[in-house]
Amino acid sequence: MVSSISDRGQSYEEEQSYDWSWYVWGARNLFSLPALILLSAFVGFGGLAREAGLPLAHLVFLVPTIWALPSHLILLAGIVSGASLFAIAPAVALAAIRMMPMTMALIPEIRAAHTKRWHLLLVSNLVAITAWVHTLQKAKDIPRRGRLPYFVGFASTMAITTTIAAALVHQLAPSLPSAVMACLYFLTPIYFATTIWNTARVRAEHLALGLGFALGPIAVWLLPQASILIAGLTAGVIAYGIHRLTISKSEQA
């Protein structure tokens, strides 16, 4: 009788807590290929920020508070082109919409029995593509109580490390050879193009990727201060339109 009460007490306690030992296992992914690629993309971003004239303090502030490289780049491009808050914020918001379905896909995987909504609101700020893809793949091999700590371990370690890397390059950029800097900057667009191609669920997203790329320079010529917003929206709408047309055609046939 006594032992059964203590058993119940123990299991209740277990259900009410996370297993934070998984945090370390998540953090260890810092030494993985996707983490390395992301790190180099932020090394490039640190250099870009330096060339754009962004002070170190602003860089160190904006990397972890935003924590989504497309948003970082749109904000930086906006600041450089002298765009207003009312042009930058909508472009950032539209580019970041993908955070919503990503968060929605992740939560059922990492939620434990006792998880509160405020836990998820906090943790969701770490949702970004690299740790997200990885945790979705790994979740099934981790006990429920360890999944949220595992994700936080990976994502927070990446956020801290990339901020440090970006800050270092911000300081070192003027002393690095220009060929090295060119290669670092070039990591980012190819990293985006390939990861987005791989995470696309429908062909329309591949089409949107190609269209956005093709419309980009046209929009710069039309209206440089809102070019990303114009090119991105147009590409997305056309890609979705074609997607609808092909669906209705295949339904008719």
Binding site: P70, G210, G212, G232, L233, G236
Partner: peptide, 9 residues
């Protein structure tokens, strides 16, 4: 997802 992908592109 189409619009978000277009913007990143």
């Amino acid at each position: 997802r189409c619009v978000a992908t277009g913007l990143v592109a």
